[in-house]
């Protein structure tokens, strides 16, 4: 009979933190004995213990620790982030895994490639759930709640309402942002891990031979800058998706990012050492053009690429500001005239 009580107390206290165990055990024992009638038999003990309920439920009452992984305050943010990550990670991992299979020196069949692709995607789904859940569970335990989340630091005020006319202009194109995240991740992985993938692929004697576009040694000097820029671009895209609408600070950040991107792109394009000479001469062989012609074409191409990069950067930056103010490009002249009129 005492054995039952001790077993019950043991089952409760083993679920409690060290510090409180002895005291809870002592108190629980006293309470149970109080509840028993004089000269109690085993039936009485059973009845009392069953009244107290299952040891794990009782231990939970004592512990009062969080009995959920992610609470209601964090739940919405968790689902949002999980959706974004689920859009990106499986695609990225599928392509990485595919690239790994294609690069396998022993070669492989298309079945192997498909298996690698699907396997990578499945891994991506599992990793997404694992890491996002883990991060949010830690945030939950660290005492973070909705008020502390960086996305909504300030107390809400009516001014935070979206402008009355919800024109679709200012809305962020989420699909586009997800696509750009996938592109960023894929590009960075390839350029930092397997830059030789960018090149002219030729099949000789059943095996693939690649002439890389870039001078691989030279490219390495660019990798830190590319990775840094990619991380910034990645964060910017995630922020855009979460924010949902263009704002002036976002347009400023977008402009700064474009500026950095254009500078890096122009540096790379005009750096003749970055382009693999072997690739150029091989291309001249493939297309049967005289030596030096391609060099000249590329020279013109470089100038054009620099101009295009700058134009795209400027245009994208301006669009960011216009969208943050809900102004259409074709309405711009009227707006500017209006502003000038107002000044006069």
């Amino acid at each position: 009979m005492m054995d039952l009580i001790e077993r019950y107390i043991q089952a409760v206290t083993e679920r409690l933190p060290d510090g409180t165990r002895d005291d809870v055990a002592r108190e629980l024992r006293a309470n149970i004995e109080d509840m028993l009638p004089d000269e109690a038999g085993e039936e009485d003990v059973r009845e009392v213990l069953e009244k107290l309920g299952s040891p794990s439920a009782l231990a939970n009452e004592y512990r009062q620790s969080k009995r959920y992984l992610i609470g209601p305050a964090m739940y919405d943010a968790y689902i949002d982030v999980l959706k974004i990550v689920l859009c990106i990670a499986p695609v990225a991992l599928a392509f990485i895994s595919l690239a790994g299979a294609v690069l396998e020196p022993s070669g492989g069949s298309y079945v192997d490639y498909a298996a690698a692709f699907i396997g990578g995607a499945v891994q991506g789904v599992l990793h997404s759930f694992l890491w996002v859940t883990l991060v949010f569970a830690i945030l939950e335990r660290a005492g973070m709640d909705e008020g502390n989340l960086s996305f909504n630091k300030k107390e809400w005020s009516v001014d935070d309402l979206p402008s009355a006319v919800q024109s679709p202009m200012g809305r962020i194109d989420r699909v586009g942002e997800v696509a750009s995240i996938i592109f960023i991740v894929g590009f960075v992985l390839v350029i930092s891990l397997m830059p030789e993938l960018f090149g002219w692929w030729e099949q000789t004697d059943g095996s693939w031979q690649v002439f890389p576009v870039f001078d691989l040694a030279r490219l390495e000097a660019y990798v830190p800058a590319i990775v840094l820029l990619a991380i910034i671009g990645f964060c910017l895209s995630v922020y855009k998706i979460v924010a949902g609408r263009w704002t002036v600070p976002l347009a400023v950040a977008n402009t700064l990012f474009n500026l950095a991107f254009v500078i890096l792109a122009c540096l790379a394009i005009t750096d003749s050492g970055l382009w693999n000479q072997e690739f150029i001469s091989h291309m001249e062989g493939v297309f049967e053009i005289s030596a030096g012609t391609l060099e000249a074409i590329m020279e013109a191409g470089r100038t054009a690429a620099v101009v295009i990069a700058i134009l795209l950067g400027v245009l994208d930056s301006i669009m960011g500001f216009l969208k943050s103010k809900d102004v259409r490009l074709r309405d711009l002249p009227d707006k500017v005239l209006g502003l000038m009129g107002a000044e006069r």
């Binding site: 309470n31 009244k51 439920a57 009782l58 009452e61």
Partner: peptide
């Protein structure tokens, strides 16, 4: 319930 009261 005792199981609620004691922890409370």
């Amino acid at each position: 319930e005792p199981g609620t009261l004691y922890p409370l």
